[in-house]
Amino acid sequence: MSDEHDIDPHGEVSVDRIRLADEYAGESARHGAVASTDVAEYAMRLGDDALVLAQHLGDWISRAPELEEDVALGNIALDLIGHARSLLHYAGTDTGRSEDDLAYFRDEPDFRNAWLFEQPNGDFAHTIARGLVASVYLVELYAALTESTDLTLAAIAAKSAKEVDYHRDHAIQWTVRLAGGTEESRRRMIVGIGDTWPYVEELFRDDELVERLAAQGVAVLPSSLRAGFDAMIADVFAEAKLELPTGRHAYIAAGGGRQGKHTEHLGPLLAEMQVLARAHPGASW
């Protein structure tokens, strides 16, 4: 048992879990690549999606249905913060702002996330439904973005692709389990999917910015990801014996997050996230 004797009880500690030095994926950290205004705007959309979803998921930690889910949802939140940091760091190079300037000192109309990501946690089924849509979309997105002609975006996408693949597994397994578990869990899963589906459409909308960037091979056209998304969802729903929402739930939300228009859920989320940083402008933490 000599290994245990070697641990110094006087608190000589080592940091082996996370390197405390900033860890950014991508070329910008290594080579100081600077994003153009268009690329910065695009990176901000992706970064805000990840950040806002991570902020919601953080609320589950210590409140999850079982300890294993405290760990799993925490892991997903942690991965998403990593993606957000890399993307916002890169987005900030255009205007000389840091990841924290962008996260903590922008107001609601300056956030570029799609509406899906700001939808509340709801019950566990809602969180899973939102996670399913998000992760199936993100797997398609990052797989395509690894081919980007922008080397920073390609590197961030390559790192993120492996992680969102795990997030997708997690969401699919729970979708199938809740749909096939008890009557109650199936009912809740169906409600969760119904409440989430209005926010699917916005994810796949093209606009002038992505069209310009896609023409240069930098961005992925959201509309090009729809077929892959639909195919995967069809497989999952077939296994879970679920159907795509119809009737009332076939409603499509207006969207507009990419232009800074948001639902009423984003403001309170940002107020909470930003409160301490804004109380001490210029402070270092």
Partner: peptide, 8 residues
């Protein structure tokens, strides 16, 4: 967690 003052 929700109010941590930096992303790091």
């Amino acid at each position: 967690i929700s109010r941590a003052p930096s992303l790091k």
